[in-house]
């Protein structure tokens, strides 16, 4: 009865940061933001998310919020600049979704991109996996 996804996976259509966030461009000038399989696996059971309110401005690489697991608290950094359009209320109420479905129901924020070109600066899935491998994971 595992409550978390157990096999690492990194979808090709996402972009990744070295701080283990992901971005999914929605094609309408907005993007979804979350944390990667690796991040949730290292944190263990996520029990609380401290996320910015809708309307907040994000600057790429600035602190976005915090994710707390049973054993650790970590800062989350903004992978892109923009304005927070929507906070995933389901994940706020059920933080375990970050563990169970990090790229699906476990998304954190929907952001209106202020500079879509920033996406190109982020890593593709293969680059991100290569970075993890280089770090010994």
């Amino acid at each position: 009865m595992a409550t978390e996804a157990r096999t690492p996976y990194y979808p090709d259509e996402l972009r990744y940061t070295k701080e283990h966030e992901w971005v999914r461009a929605q094609g309408d000038g907005t993007a979804l933001v979350g944390i990667t399989f690796f991040a949730q696996d290292q944190l263990g059971d996520v029990v609380y998310l401290n996320l910015p309110a809708p309307g907040s401005s994000l600057a790429q690489t600035g602190k976005l919020g915090e994710v707390e697991s049973v054993k650790a608290v970590s800062d989350i950094f903004a992978p892109v600049s923009g304005q927070v359009m929507e906070v995933n209320q389901e994940v706020v109420a059920h933080p375990e979704l970050v563990n169970q479905d990090p790229y699906g129901k476990g998304w954190l924020l929907r952001v209106r991109l202020s500079d879509p070109k920033e996406l190109a600066k982020l890593m593709a899935a293969k680059q991100y996996q290569a970075m993890l491998a280089a770090e010994g994971h």
């Binding site: 701080e19 991040a39 054993k71 650790a72 970590s74 989350i76 994971h137």
Partner: peptide
């Protein structure tokens, strides 16, 4: 005790 840091550093729990 618990660990505090960025996601970047969580592997050194």
């Amino acid at each position: 005790s618990y660990h505090r840091g960025s996601l970047l550093h969580i592997r050194g729990l």
